[in-house]
Design a protein around this nucleic acid. Structure first.
Length: 503
RNA sequence: GGGUUAGUAGCUCAAUGGUAGAGCAGUUGCCUUUUAAGCAAUUGGUUCUGGGUUCGAGUCCCAGCUGACCCA
């Protein structure tokens, strides 16, 4: 194998690297070695080095370390070179010289065989360069794993949305903000567990395959169970099984789980997403208010270090302090400017929506509460940027909550809205099995087979009074990271398969 | 599902209907404290796919594929 060989194929980046691979193997080297002892990460190296001495000609040398990571940049300057390698903590600079690693190895191995994208291991002492950057002076190095394909361009990174989502690993290598955002997601989830464990909640796992997809109103994904020859649904909510846990005496339970809704894809919707649901016996929706407020502020404190979020478009959201409370009714009256809104007929409401509010959708065949809720969802919720607990929601909207004793048209629930989205609904959970049955029947209408009668039987055995809450984790992460799009907060968002036939 | 819009070298982007280019990456040299290192030379194209209009299409038209944004 000769230089002309590489020259001839120099346009084909993959072929060049494959050729290097076979040259390495021909020389008796395994370009995918078993391991490399990594004594320090990049960040630990930075922490190990004493501060720079100002004006000193020779900066103090640090301890010997052994680091490993992916080569991000290479600058060869004749007989000395600088590399930057990326590990789980960030980037550390490497200094390689002919005199330290040997002329033969430097000229024919380091300069010819190491490419951007390769994993390398490096042993040597830490020092500071003349500009003060902490650097490993390579005593020796090894190629740990060869990369056969090139990385995206170093300066502009990867900007093509499709490639960012389809080849997320490239995005993670190249785009620091993406890596940080997804690390933050993981830390948020860890902080949630930590918080709930601290309050004596039990984490449980309930089935994803449901014979009846209950607990929410959404179209489910259907799958077939061969052994039982029947269809199952992927769960659309966690609620009904967690309540069975309350019946069974698990007084404080939560589950962080994936749920699936067979609906559209958008900036705010991914068909599979992560829900946290929490149920606490001997609590109620007021208790859930305290819980979610403390939980979010715990995350702010331990993960973000601030309660002020700056959104992608510069809008600021303040999560500190007490949060606003407003009733559903007051918000609707405020928006419509009509104090008598709730005593008007459906026809009057629809006319007002079309003439005054610019809402096209409400139709005659809708229920009265649906017309009002259209106003809430389209015109009010998007404006609730700062945290707001919306309370006293009409009873038709959630069949699983307790009815308010003073105002029997409303429920003992709240919807926490932040960032123009519903982040967390919470209820004083309905535990009267007879009322529960009526409300589920009213919601199901003709589709009686959609009622989870097994759940109702569980309630008939008695469920303690409880507060319950669900948090859409993806929306929470959008909020807390200021992201513009749900896909930016999901490692591998759902995409249309490439080259698959549509049916 | 509807509207708008995009797809050009490995990546980021140019290119009045008239010879497809640049930067980075690659290859070959020079260069022992660089910072998007520098200097010189150089390889690399099914312009998403398929039709059409035209003397001539990356560019105009139609259909499809895959995205993005908005609406439903």
């Amino acid at each position: 194998m000769s230089e002309t060989n590489l020259n001839a194929i120099s346009h084909d980046l993959y072929a060049v690297r494959k050729e290097k691979l076979s040259q390495l193997r021909a020389g008796g080297e395994d370009p995918f070695r078993n391991n490399w002892e990594q004594t320090h990460t990049s960040k630990q190296c930075l922490e190990l080095m004493p501060a720079a001495v100002e004006g000193a000609e020779h900066q103090p040398e640090g301890p010997e370390v052994s680091v490993a990571g992916r080569v991000m940049t290479i600058r060869i300057m004749g007989k000395a070179s600088f590399l930057k390698i990326l590990d789980r903590d960030g980037v550390i600079q490497i200094y390689v010289t002919r005199d330290e690693v040997g002329a033969e190895r430097y000229n024919t191995h380091f300069k010819k065989m190491i490419d951007i994208g390769d994993f390398v291991g490096v042993r040597g002492h830490l020092f500071r360069t003349s500009t003060g950057e902490v650097t490993v002076r390579a005593k020796d190095y090894g190629l740990v794993a060869k990369a056969l394909r090139p990385l995206p361009e170093k300066w502009h990174g990867l900007t093509d949305n499709e490639q960012i989502y389809r080849q997320r690993y490239l995005d993670l290598i190249i785009n620091e903000e993406s890596r940080q955002r997804l690390v933050t997601r993981s830390k948020i989830i860890a902080a949630i567990r930590q918080f709930l464990w601290g309050r004596d909640f039990l984490e449980v796992e309930t089935p994803s395959l449901h014979a009846i997809a209950g607990g929410a109103a959404a179209r489910p994904f259907v799958t077939h169970f061969n052994a039982l020859s029947c269809d199952f649904f992927l769960r659309i909510a966690l609620e009904l099984h967690l309540k069975r846990c309350l019946v069974g005496g698990f007084d404080r339970v939560f589950e962080l789980g994936r749920v699936f809704r067979n609906e559209g894809l958008s900036r705010r919707h991914n068909p599979e997403f992560t829900m946290l649901e929490v149920y606490q016996a001997y609590s109620d929706y007021r208790g859930m208010m305290e819980l979610v407020h403390s939980l979010v502020q715990h995350i702010c404190r331990t993960v973000l270090g601030t309660t002020k979020i700056t959104r992608y478009d510069g809008v600021e959201i303040e999560l500190g302090g007490a949060w606003r409370e407003a009733t559903y009714k007051d918000l609707v009256i405020e928006k419509t400017g009509d104090a008598d809104w709730f005593s008007r007929s459906k026809a009057e409401k629809i006319a007002f929506c079309k003439d005054k509010l610019g809402l096209l959708e409400p139709r005659e065949d809708w229920h009265d509460f649906e017309v009002t809720n259209e106003v809430f969802e389209k015109l009010i919720e998007p404006t609730l940027i700062q945290p707001t607990f919306v309370t006293h929601i009409p009873k038709e909207l959630c069949p699983l909550a307790k009815i308010n004793q003073q105002d029997t048209g409303t429920l003992d629930v709240f919807e926490l809205c932040i960032n123009g989205q519903e982040i967390a609904p919470a209820y004083s959970e309905q535990n009267d099995p007879l009322v529960q049955r009526e409300m589920l029947e009213a919601q199901a209408g003709e589709d009686v087979q959609k009622i989870d009668t097994d759940f109702l039987e569980a309630l008939e055995h008695g469920m303690p009074p409880a507060g319950g809450m669900g948090i859409g984790i993806d929306r929470l992460v959008i909020l807390l990271t200021g992201a513009a799009n749900i896909r930016d907060t999901i490692l591998f968002p759902t995409l249309r398969p490439e080259g698959a036939e549509k049916k």
